[in-house]
């Protein structure tokens, strides 16, 4: 009887000292393999500040346009350019791009597409208004001027 009791006593604690190692291995594995941003930003991005910010609800409806001076001026010139997905596009191609983005959405949501325009603060209004004109042509009229918060005075 006493022997029997002893046996159960020893087998009760399972060695768990290797558990953190396993968790660590998993953590490192996912840290190494996850890609946070799949697209490289090719234009300069100093987002302007504003106070009256609004948040958008549905992230799936948002498509991003980046506007700014190209980082690689030797290759793309110093004039502000528009980046959609991961390539620089001409202003004329925006309509095409909007239609491609709309195709990704479901039928019912197509007219709710929102363009988040991340423009550099040094860009002039000329290129911005050209982009806005093209967006009107493409009937993507919800536009978000991306901005970061500023302390309100």
């Amino acid at each position: 009887m006493s022997k029997f009791k002893k046996k159960t006593g020893t087998s009760q604690n399972i060695p768990t000292s290797a558990l953190p190692d396993i968790i660590f291995m998993l953590l490192f594995f996912f840290m190494v393999t996850t890609v946070l941003r799949e697209q490289e930003i090719l234009v300069e991005q100093k987002i302007p500040q504003a106070t009256q910010l609004q948040k958008l609800e549905k992230k799936t409806l948002i498509s991003y346009l980046y506007i700014g001076k190209p980082k690689n001026t030797a290759m793309f010139g110093a004039e502000p350019r528009v980046q959609a997905n991961d390539v620089l596009i001409n202003t004329k191609d925006i309509v095409l791009w909007v239609n491609q983005e709309k195709d990704k959405l479901s039928e019912a949501e197509r007219d709710q597409i929102t363009i988040s325009m991340k423009a550099d603060r040094d860009v002039k209004m000329g290129p911005i208004s050209d982009v806005q004109f093209e967006l009107r042509e493409a009937d993507a009229r919800k536009l978000l001027y991306a901005a970061v918060g500023k302390v309100q005075n």
Binding site: Q52, L53, K55, Q132, R136, D139, L143, L144, Y145, A147
Partner: peptide, 28 residues
Amino acid sequence: AFLLLIFFLVTTTIASDKGILNILPPKQ
């Protein structure tokens, strides 16, 4: 583990979609 966790908590920025919403007029 905690140190790592806190380090990554501090350094990651989650891209937030904040900005000023504007509705463009319909095309002419």
